[in-house]
Nucleic acid binder design. Sequence first.
DNA 1: GACCTGCTGCGGGCTG
Length: 707
Amino acid sequence: MSYKLLSEPIRKYIRSQGWEALRPIQAASISKILSTDHNYILASRTASGKTEAAFLPILSKTNFNEKGVQVLYISPLIALINDQVRRVEDLCKNLEIDVTKWHGEANRTLKKNLIKNPNGIVLITPESIEAMFVNAPYNITNLFGNLKFVIIDEIHSFLGVDRGLQLMSLLFRIQRKANKKFRIIGLSATIGDENYIHAKKLTGDVENTKVLLDRTKKPTIAKFKFYESESKELPLELLKDLYIETKENKALVFPNSRARTEEVAVKLHKISDRINGHKNYFSHHSSVDKEIRESVEFFAKNNQRDNFCISATSTLELGIDIGTVDKIIQIDSTYSVASLVQRIGRSGRKEGEKSVVCIYATEKWSLLQSLACWNLYKKDFLEPINTAIKPYDLLLHQLLSIVKQYSGIQTKDLIHELSENPVFEHISTEDIETLLHYSIEEDFLERIRTELILGLAGEKIVNSRDFYSVFSTDPDFKVIHSGRKVGQIPFSPQIQVNENLLLAAKIWKIKDIDHKAGIIEVIPAKDGKAPSFFGGTGGIHEEVRKEMLRILKSKDDYKELNQECKNILNELRFEFKNFDIRNFEADRPLITKEHQIILYTFSGTKINRSVSFLLAVSGYDVILNDNNSSIEIRTDSFAKAISDIKKNYEALDSHLEEKLIENDTLLSFSKWGIYLPMNYKIEIVKERYFDFKTAIAFINNMKIIKY
DNA sequence: GACCTGCTGCGGGCTG
């Protein structure tokens, strides 16, 4: 049915592919996109043909003889653009439609050609759009003035994060400059029912955006194993078992950190060498050189026969095409259910195959958390997304970007443009004016009669290469072996001459460190320990913690657990046996010792963080262990501690101000927040780093259970 | 107890 709606060249393409039938999401999107004017969110699992579901009807409907770029495809990753460009070119092969990559590593001559003759399809990143607004705003109208469709790939990766707000703002600004509406199609595999509203908001037109959903799920087989880890390194018994699990498979291993990713790749390779197994052990994460990573992806995608094992961080979580994988290994719990979904989705991609996952735990609480994530996975739970309501940091960033775009703008026009932008719909005009005045005081902006231009301090910020993105990264040291780059790592005190490090699945000895140039020279070595990398703070959602408590207090038996796991779970259950917990929302165990109490909150990271902060500013010695969600407080009276928390919550803003004056660590989540006036700094820290409202509600609602 | 993401314009030197 849908097939008949397509234009003849597209039908010809479909026939030439030898497809038996259109996939459900494709059939649905073809008829809807062709017969309505709505925006759509296409949600269906990995490898279900979403790219074609978007492009087939769009190519069929669009007249590419018109001047200007007709279709803009936006991706969160360069690697994904490089993957998708081949598929899109293949689709366009007989249609005489130009396809152009536009990102920081794309060919400049081809970009120039596009500017001379704007047409066809462009694949781009949000940062490249930002850069175009700042450096060549005339190209926005020149290229995108006649745009018909925007496709946003992996749209879930933009939801609830600053980068998504930036993209939302940029889409509005293109729309405004083009003075013409284009349709938006978002693609995603992992998006919960509660979260569609956030995807709709991103389009700027909630009313007019519909969701097309294919809920079909692959059956998943899971098994759990337990090997207690006594040091930082993985137990040998675990590695031996892991070797047996993976040796005759195409396997992906997710060990959660870059250091462990290297440890797994090197040690499995060693075991395999000893008994003449295959040699295809790789590591894949942000510190491994890009070319090496690409060759690993190429190997996985293009070899049918050989088995392999790639040890990876979340770099292999998104849609980069690595072909079919038989088995997923997760070492210790993922930090979210969403992440578990993405990882499991990478196995059994062929029709009719099952997904297979093997989860190892090295610590009892990690086992409990893994099991909680798995239970929630089976229930189709995904963490709800929080979109910032008042993103003052992005407001400042976009304010500077817009002033540069117009190279001088009337104050009232600037206020108008900002207050019309749906990203800032909850920020008042008074707030925008306050920020404008502050920006003039700080010399970010300069007033010339009624017009605003960039001030000296503003020029310095906007004219930096670092301006285009809303996230920050640490400077890296290049790791070089005889002139060839192996990767790049953040500097840490353990990095010393003659020390060893693991990188790109190989062991290296450090021969020389050039601190000024940021270069580490290495030679191959026989033995070594993993480099340690620095990291920030993450967050576990309260639903995962509640599920952990529920498992702990239930008598449920899980067939996915091996005997060792069952024993460990029983040990944990025994520890909490005497706490009479009936209401999983409110009842929380409390252990009282001499001058010290331990509260198990079984709540989310942000709530734990907020409670601990209020205790600390009340003068208590507090240790937050977010690993088992416990808060240790030095005190004899918990009741007194609770009343102090409530008392100090009333003076929260001044406590936060005090900490923010000390240093900016509380603000490290926001790249542009450091330039804000104090009251807005406090606002964004309260909204995004903590969650005091929920924390206080939690405290008020909590019923302490002792034994 | 983390992990990940992206990037201009200009000029100089080199290659074909």
